[in-house]
Amino acid sequence: MASGAQGAKGTLYRGREGMWSWVAQRVTGVLLFFFLFAHVLDTALVRVSPHTYNQVIGTYKNPVVNLLEVGLVGAVMFHAFNGLRIIAVDFWSKGPKYQRQLLWVVVGLWAVLMLGFLEPMMQHTFHEWFGW
């Protein structure tokens, strides 16, 4: 392939939206796997005692951790919507043709929902930091 992938150099696999969405799917997937593992463990503390559970769950209410949770929700939503895009590419006859446009639908939907949920997700932090 002499002039295949536009702009691709070295060992970069094709590049552009197709490759980068694949990279993002992978990175978010690995992050979510590790979070899921930790989250099952913290939830298991309900079998230890209400006090222990509430103490550990209390860390989720720390403003800095709250910001990380917003990142977690962002990672889940991207992985979910891009996953549906992958299904469309695999099963919808026109999916491969519109894969690039579908990614921008994913990104747009993601941005709208993140903006809409930001206030409810962070109301406690906003209250603590800014007195809102």
Partner: peptide
Amino acid sequence: MMVTDGGVEKIGFAFV
């Protein structure tokens, strides 16, 4: 868990 009814603040043993 994160959006409705006060977000993460409501979560605790009683909620579970």
